[in-house]
Write a protein that binds this DNA or RNA. Structure first.
Lengths: 259, 259
DNA sequence: GCTGCTATGTGCGTTGCCGGACAGACGGCA
DNA sequence: TGCCGTCTGTCCGGCAACGCACATAGCAGC
């Protein structure tokens, strides 16, 4: 089933380090196996370890009213889990839950902090990652507000496929509903629509992506936007236009007019 | 009308700097007047100036599909606008629009970068601010998903009141609709509901908050949560519980079980 | 094979918001 | 004073998603 599995199973952030620094960093890392469904941090937990997934994927979750939960970010081999440490914090600001089982590099907080000081390329690299994460959160907020469940589901499946590096992965509709913050039946409807169009196939806790291109066409544009942000950062390439519906309603000139 | 106006009209982030550093920073700042409706950055713009509002407030906006826009963050005297620079970036990742007219300290990018290197307290302070911003984005995503317009409107009004430091401020329903990503009529309904309960009073482009406590009770809990995050960061105090509706659906143990 | 658990599918009325259209009200300006 | 642009209020049908309840289907263990 895992047809798209890659040869190299490392983490892209760490790969981006200069070889010397990377070696020093890896010397203090342990390769661990994350179990699907395990909670890495509860909101407000003191962070003990940071994680750099290689095959696994982790969901960042925000909760309101003690029961409604929404996935606001996804971390795979392109990222890291425990971003608060990058910014000098001690506590996890969001719940982190292993969504796709698999391997991840792990380092304890103290060691990680030491590397942040001693490896000159590390902090800038991770700062850049934080800014990407920040943009992803903003995009998810808008996406969740404006896009229908079916398109959001398609986006989620594509994002997960990228991180699982496989066409097929284990997930129940109940879990998907939890991630997208909708009813399970909402997922049933959306998923069966996608299946009837032969974009995906699913059965009892497992989903296979059949046609990636058409699934991408069925997803909202947020998927592609996210990819662009990861690839090019926030340069002009990832620009999305956007104008106020009624410019007249805004007093004053549009550009900065401060003295 | 502006009964709650404070004597000190400075910026809280800059106030938190040690006196010596603050003085050096202010020496290179200009106090400018932001005009309501002016766009400080378009998404993807190279950042030329950063802003530290004192009386003004700025909205950070995310756009999807070239027309649907959502306010994902608000910056007032408690924050700064141009966070990308803190993380070493050059480009604005979100649109920034002056929502409440007023004064702000401004510095150009080059000078700001120099201060980041030379003033030892600045970078840690702003890093902490970024992590707060990040948490605010996540909260907004969940809030936008789960809370009805009336509660979101109440939250928005409270947040704006805090930043305007006045009970009354100028804003049209059209603009509110734009911020919350809903129809103008949706605001009409919500606002007249709040007005009928004597929590606010409004007339033609201006809103007055009549009863702050009851308005807070009418707002979603996200308002209070935000305040806690600003006050205490992500320590245990700001913890919000949250459990999966059906724990059974998650395979494996709940705590981290990696080797 | 049967049992029992979990995952998926369907039906029903309800609700919050949408899109569009239009009527009324306010307030600056001539 | 009266005009006119802007802001606000009300109506309509429609739809996506909700909450609840119950029916079916896959799969594991005995």
């Amino acid at each position: 089933m895992s047809t798209r599995r890659c040869a190299t199973s490392s983490n892209r952030l760490l790969d981006a380090l200069p070889a010397k620094e990377r070696d020093r960093f890896f010397a203090d890392c342990t390769l661990v196996d994350l179990v699907a469904g395990s909670v890495l941090y509860e909101q407000g937990d003191r962070i003990r370890y940071v994680y750099f997934p290689t095959e696994s994927s982790i969901s960042m979750l925000a909760t309101v009213d003690d029961h409604s939960t929404l996935e606001v970010g996804m971390v795979g081999r392109e990222g890291m889990c425990g971003h608060a440490l990058i910014l000098g914090g001690d506590f996890a600001s969001l719940r982190a839950l292993t969504q796709g089982a698999g391997a991840a590099w792990r380092t304890d907080t103290t060691t990680f902090r030491r590397h942040l000081e001693n490896l000159p390329a590390l902090q800038p690299l991770l700062d850049r990652y934080v800014s990407i994460l920040l943009r992803q959160l903003a995009q998810t907020a808008a996406c969740t507000r404006f896009h229908v469940v079916e398109k959001r589901l398609a986006r989620w499946l594509l994002m997960t496929q990228d991180r699982a590096q496989a066409d097929s992965f284990d997930v129940t509709q109940e879990f998907l509903a939890f991630m997208l913050g909708v009813r399970r039946v909402g997922i049933t409807t959306a998923a069966s629509s996608l299946q009837s169009r032969k974009l995906i196939h699913y059965r009892r806790g497992s989903i296979t992506i059949l046609n990636r291109d058409r699934l991408e066409a069925a997803a909202c544009t947020c998927y592609r936007f996210d990819l662009e942000v990861y690839r090019h950062g926030m340069t002009a390439r990832a620009r999305g236009p956007g104008s106020f519906r009624h410019q007249r309603a805004l007093a004053g000139p549009i550009r900065t007019t401060d003295a």
